[in-house]
Design a protein around this nucleic acid. Sequence first.
DNA 1: CCTTTATATAACTATTCGCTTATATAATAA
DNA 2: TTATTATATAAGCGAATAGTTATATAAAGG
Lengths: 114, 114
Amino acid sequence: MSKTAIDIQRAANVLKLLGDKTRLTMIKILDNHDACVCEFVEIFKTSQPAISQHVRKLKDAGLVRETRRGQWIIYSLNKDSEYFPLVKDLLLHLPNQDFRLKELEEQGLRISCE
Amino acid sequence: MSKTAIDIQRAANVLKLLGDKTRLTMIKILDNHDACVCEFVEIFKTSQPAISQHVRKLKDAGLVRETRRGQWIIYSLNKDSEYFPLVKDLLLHLPNQDFRLKELEEQGLRISCE
DNA sequence: CCTTTATATAACTATTCGCTTATATAATAA
DNA sequence: TTATTATATAAGCGAATAGTTATATAAAGG
């Protein structure tokens, strides 16, 4: 066990959060780029409340942070989370999701949040 | 992304499986020692069917293997699983669980399965 | 053979989960 | 101010989850 070992109950809670395709993809995207709710709505082709509820869970667990910028709220990975090293290691095993933001840009939907 | 990147949907399924304290602890234990259902029943102080259902999920996902030895069925980590590298990295962040098997030995319950 | 031990499976139940719709809040723009 | 855009929250619903009890299978020992 390493010095930064995480209590197994709390680790399970984090893994449960990441055990959802939408949230896991969100985190993988946020690993490279900050994003707002409206972008996720476009990317996942789902409703705004559904996205808000997903990001809220990630925020409640301390995995992401929010920053208001005008009328938008920008979400980013919380690098200070005790879970951040675990999450980072996890993400290494997942395919890059940058193409999703690229698709948004091509549709002119990315700039809407900047 | 690495060459061994795992489809994000399937990774989410695996993380959901591991997002349960009992199953996550099982996997952490199996990382160091094979074990049978009856040992897990003692360790987790829960019913035999509950344990059987947990190991079945892990087996169905290919994370563990079973080997019958007499009347016991011994479970072990499946190192050939495509998810094994991911799981291994994960486990590095969790506290060692050897004390659980040690407790069994002290109670004389470990040998019952060997 | 019958009994015991280990494990699996089926049916049921309570809880949790992720979505929906409707509504509220907050910032911006006209 | 009023309208628009972005986001959050609440309530409700159907599906999935993890446990329970009861029963089935399978090996070992008498």
